[in-house]
């Protein structure tokens, strides 16, 4: 039963990733594109955790932790770059 739930969850998250990609391409402004990238990072973390459950190993938690950190830092860096024209003042 968990297998079917995993397949359903992976399909939902994958569909969400496609929607985010569409917003990333279409997005009317730079803020929307950064927002789409941020949401994509969160969805990729969810997808990695689902894959880890499917494989039955905890190895993927470290990878998802790193991706979450890098995604947050990149979002903040991009926003600061737009706001100030500089990342580290």
């Amino acid at each position: 039963m968990i297998t079917y739930a995993l397949v359903f969850a992976m399909a939902c998250i994958g569909l969400g990733l496609l929607m985010n990609l569409w917003l990333l391409v279409r997005g009317p402004g730079r803020a929307d594109r950064v927002l789409a990238l941020d949401t994509m990072v969160i969805n990729v973390v969810a997808l990695l955790i689902l894959y880890g459950i499917r494989q039955g190993t905890g190895v993927y938690f470290e990878a998802s932790m790193l991706i979450a950190m890098v995604g947050f830092v990149s979002t903040v860096a991009y926003c600061r770059f737009i706001l100030r024209g500089d990342i580290i003042e």
Binding site: A5, A9, G16, W22, L35, N43
Partner: peptide, 16 residues
């Protein structure tokens, strides 16, 4: 799992 996946889908759909 199903609740989490549905909320993720709703979030991405709301973004569009």
């Amino acid at each position: 799992l199903v609740i989490g996946a549905l909320f993720g889908l709703v979030g991405s759909f709301g973004l569009l």
